[in-house]
Design a protein around this nucleic acid. Structure first.
Lengths: 153, 153
DNA sequence: ACGAATCTTTACAAAAAAGTCAAGATTGAT
DNA sequence: ATCAATCTTGACTTTTTTGTAAAGATTCGT
C-alpha cells in the first residue's frame, strides 16, 4: 500500500508552486532544482496538473506555472486522483462505479470490508485537507484530521 | 494510492485458508480455483506468506496450507507489509527508520504532514483488524474502525 | 518399495510504470 | 525583427512489478 511516484512528486510540485511564489509563478528549472527532480520529469507532472485544472501555465520569457485557484479551494483528493489514476483502485474486487458495486472476481469478496474501512479512513483525511492546511504547521494538520470521526460514525 | 496485486491476492489467499478449511488445510489447486488465480501465482504468494510465518505448509498426498496461528492472533498490517514490501513507503520523504526521521530530499518536506495523517488513519484501521474480524460481517468491521479516534487524538 | 499428489525453487517472459530525450511552439524583452 | 527563455508534445528507454514455466524434492497411502 503506497503512493505512486507520480502522486508523491506531483503533489510536491503543486505544493512548491503554492508556497514559493503564489503571484509570479515558478518555472520548471526552479521547481526541478527545489525538488531534486529532472526538468523532463517535472514537465511531465505539471502537464497532468495543468490538464486537471489545478495550475495555469504561461509561455515566453516571463512564463511559468501558477495555481489556477486559491489554495484553500484546492482539495488533495482530486489532485491525487488526477496524478495517480483512480484513488483506491482494487482491480478485481470493485468495478469502477464505486465501493458498493458487485464483486466480479471470487465467490465471496472477503477483502471488501478491509478495503472499505481503509478507504473510508483515508478518504476522510484527504477530503478535508486543502493545500492551505498543508502549508501550515503540523499541529494544524493534526486538528484537520480530527473530524475524521464524523465520517466514520 | 492503491494496494499492489500481491497485497490483494495474497490477502485473499490467506483469508481463503482461514475461512474454508481451518483444520485440514487447503491445496494450491483448491485456492487457485476458488480465487481465479493461476496455480503458479498462488504458489508464489503462499511462499511469501509462509516465510512471513503466517501459514504452515506440508507436502505429500495429504499436504496443503494451514494458518500458523489462530486467526485472532494474525494482524492484517504485518501481512500486508510482508506481501507488499514496506507499508506506506514514501521513497524520498522518509528514510526507512520511521515517519519522524529526517527528510533527505527537498529543502522542506511539505508532503510529510499529509503522509503522516494518512498513515495514522490507515495504520489505526489495519492494526485493529484481525483475520477473525474480517471473517465476520461488515457491521463488525465498522465497529472495529471506530477506535480510530484513539490513535488520532 | 512404489507412485500419485503435493509443495519448492529458480529462472524466465510479459506488462506496467517511471523516467528521459529531442524537436517544436510560443512569448516577452530588447 | 530578433533572441533567449519558456512551455509542449510525442516517442523512446529503463526499471519495476507481475505473472509463467519447468524441473525438482518431499510425503503419504497402498
Amino acid at each position: 500500500m503506497k503512493f505512486s511516484a507520480q502522486e508523491e512528486y506531483g503533489l510536491r510540485c503543486l505544493l512548491r508552486i503554492a508556497k514559493e511564489s503564489p503571484d509570479d509563478g515558478l518555472t520548471i528549472p526552479e521547481i526541478s532544482a527545489a525538488e531534486g527532480l529532472t526538468q523532463a520529469n517535472v514537465a511531465k507532472l505539471l502537464r497532468i496538473l495543468r490538464m486537471g485544472g489545478f495550475i495555469d501555465s504561461s509561455r515566453g520569457q516571463t512564463g511559468g506555472y501558477k495555481l489556477a485557484k486559491k489554495p484553500e479551494e484546492i482539495l488533495i483528493a482530486p489532485v491525487l486522483s488526477a496524478l495517480g489514476g483512480r484513488l483506491f483502485e482494487s482491480s478485481f474486487c470493485f468495478d469502477h462505479s464505486g465501493v458498493d458495486s458487485i464483486c466480479t472476481h471470487s465467490i465471496d469478496c472477503s477483502v471488501r470490508s478491509l478495503w472499505r474501512a481503509v478507504q473510508n479512513a483515508v478518504d476522510a483525511v484527504t477530503m478535508k485537507l486543502t493545500l492551505r492546511d498543508m502549508m501550515n504547521s503540523e499541529e494544524q494538520v493534526q486538528s484537520v484530521v480530527t473530524p475524521l470521526v464524523e465520517t466514520i460514525n
